[in-house]
Amino acid sequence: MESIISVRKLTKSYKNVKAVKAIDFEVEKGEIFGFLGPNGAGKSTTINMICTMLKPTSGDIVINGYDATEEKDAVRASIGIIFQENTLDEKLTANENLLLHCRFYHVPKEQREKRIHEVLEIVDLVDERYRRVETFSGGMKRRLEIARGLLHYPKVLFLDEPTVGLDPQTRAHLWEYILKLKEKEGITMFLTTHYLDEAEISDRVAIMDQGEIIAIDSPTALKDQLGGDMIELKTEDNEQTLKEIEEKIEEAEVTVDGDTIHLKVASSDAFISTFMQNFTIPITTLNIRKPSLNDVFLAFTGRKIAEAAKE
């Protein structure tokens, strides 16, 4: 695969803090690249450097063949950014916002009409084209921002927490649009989010913590690294159960959290059948689940993402 973003030894230090510590990674053409980590992990600093908004202390960033510190304008023309907060001019209409963007990005005059229509169609806002943005709902504004980010046909679209502040329904809808974009346009997407379940749509994810990238792979591979499925078990006599597990099932990794026994097993199917045949103690609850990215985060950092964010 050809890479569209390549980051080498990227470092950013402030007076006495190293916010980003010599990180390396590549983003491949056409993939959805999830960039995860708690607040203060150095995510925003990294993205700002990639987007030419912040000067790196050292290291190289190459996007679409251009150097992010030397050829800023070429890099800026190659990327589209959907910021966490609203950056539309609400006093203007959707059409005016889009036209201004065409001008900022030197979209040729004769193509503007076609492209505006095209991007509005992708996000289902054709009918709202001449309405003022201040009359839009939160979800519509987000969609309009995505449309605007696509106007200049960027090679990479950065989505910084695109669903923050949206209700679950709108959120699900927005992901549909984003997936549609990936399929139809083949745009590379660089995505940051707090919601680890949303990051599951990524082809690959990088997990950043305390200025370093601690894991980078596809979500499935990362979860497989954790070794199989998670089982949560409550029984009437946990001590006896633990003893029996030790005797009869060898390959399980066991931890106890209060009155819950957590088991990590290679395959839950095989485990359950052995378990049912051999155990005598009555079970009060049994919960089987596939590991989530949250478990991955927990395994790599020793903390849950929510706890890490509080630090």
């Binding site: 304008d73 950056t87 539309l88 001019d89 609400e90 900022f104 990005y105």
Partner: peptide, 14 residues
């Protein structure tokens, strides 16, 4: 304040 400056600053305008 309203964020629009970001839209301007990330664009390739000199």
């Amino acid at each position: 304040d309203f964020g629009y400056m970001k839209e301007i600053l990330v664009s390739p305008i000199s």
